[in-house]
Design a protein around this nucleic acid. Sequence first.
DNA 1: CTCAACAATTGATCTATATCAGCAAGCTAA
DNA 2: TTAGCTTGCTGATATAGATCAATTGTTGAG
Lengths: 253, 253
Amino acid sequence: MAISNSNNRFSSKLTSQCQNCSLSALCLPIALADEDVNRLDQIIERKRPLKKGELLFHQGEEFDSVFAVRTGTLKTFNITNSGEEQITGFYCPSELVGLSGIDENHYPVSAKALETTTVCEIPFSHLEQLSSQIPSLKHQLFRLMSRKICDDQQMMVLLGKKNADEKVASFLLNLSHRFKKRGYSATAFRLSMSRGEIGNYLGLAVETVSRVMTRFQKNGLIDVDGKEISIIDMAEMEKLVGASSECANIEHV
Amino acid sequence: MAISNSNNRFSSKLTSQCQNCSLSALCLPIALADEDVNRLDQIIERKRPLKKGELLFHQGEEFDSVFAVRTGTLKTFNITNSGEEQITGFYCPSELVGLSGIDENHYPVSAKALETTTVCEIPFSHLEQLSSQIPSLKHQLFRLMSRKICDDQQMMVLLGKKNADEKVASFLLNLSHRFKKRGYSATAFRLSMSRGEIGNYLGLAVETVSRVMTRFQKNGLIDVDGKEISIIDMAEMEKLVGASSECANIEHV
DNA sequence: CTCAACAATTGATCTATATCAGCAAGCTAA
DNA sequence: TTAGCTTGCTGATATAGATCAATTGTTGAG
């Protein structure tokens, strides 16, 4: 089954899609020579879009690929023994999902589309092989995984030490940075996740998320209109986040 | 100073220390052919022991090596803007510290010895080079980083969703597993960190850690004598941890 | 051995956030 | 259109765990 399916792996032979992709400066191809981008391009499968709510992979499934988000958003989550969902991350365009599956050869989480979402599937065994031949690709992979470790540790600090205000502010600014990096507005954007999902991710009750956002709006920090967010007072928001966004800070040095 | 000191980089030429190391089955050399272990061995520096409280590297310092703990224990931590310490991890023998520095080429955390500790320094540029020549070493590195991502995400679940009892139980069982893996008792061990450090790590006040442990003891779950811990009722402890230790579970499949 | 500094425990409050409950506004399907 | 869901907001109350404070135990320097 995987065999017949994998024919479209070669559909990219005609032209390098990676080179035309607006995300290539952020995704894996960063700092690759043209010919290397082509080689990477050859191993990538473009999948049909996922509709909102569809799973990209599910917890326990055998690992064989990592995925780069092209459009849309994904969330990854665990189902705990008690049956509740615990969201471990949101993934925006240019970001890589599935790296946590390498170790045990099974995905330890599920990945679900929050809206219509397209991804590039990158079979990991091919990627690993190719990375032997292209040192800068290998380095890029190490860097991406290292950044993920760094980011997750910042998230641990957030969950362990921050109060509700700081959590919500951190979350919004984090999204803001990610939009900015892709060339979108850092101050006005649309949340693709529900309040419930934000709360779940931040370790807060839905009601708390709602209350904090309302208060932020009252105090002129942000403007909220359903899923549309505008950051009005960026300086004050940054002050709220304040402590310990080390990974981000170092980037600015 | 670092120069004169680094002469001992070559002390390993005489014989492969990795091959004699009791941790080689857990550390990087896992699944390497003998000749490859020797090549790895050549790039490793054995450093003088760190005394309790000494820093291995500090937040912001330029990244050039990862470190494998040989004996003792390390903690990694951030200093937040408000000046408080936030512990992001504890490292036991055979575990690798410093991977989070790859991305930005600076360590985003500090690493401090909790007791007298010896480490193997592995210059990352050498390791990366070597990994090009030894595919299984490269794979091992990917796996280690993937596992770290997986572990950190479990920690996020712990911090976001668990109550004090579950946090402390998870922490103790996690240590138990790590001791067991190295061939030590899974039920009786010594904590190398203070109650304050445990609380800091788990997002709890010292007092709460103390109270939970006392209650666990009263209820016959564990036996506490200062830093010495015995797990009496492993089944009940595991029930407490219960939900969502996915990475660990998959390992048992 | 002794004193000082620090680490751990225990008890008494306080508080941030969860939980419970009710309501309003959209959205979907018939 | 209306009934039935879902999502978000807000108020009232409950509670887990923080904070404050006092006591005891431990460690290590001289």
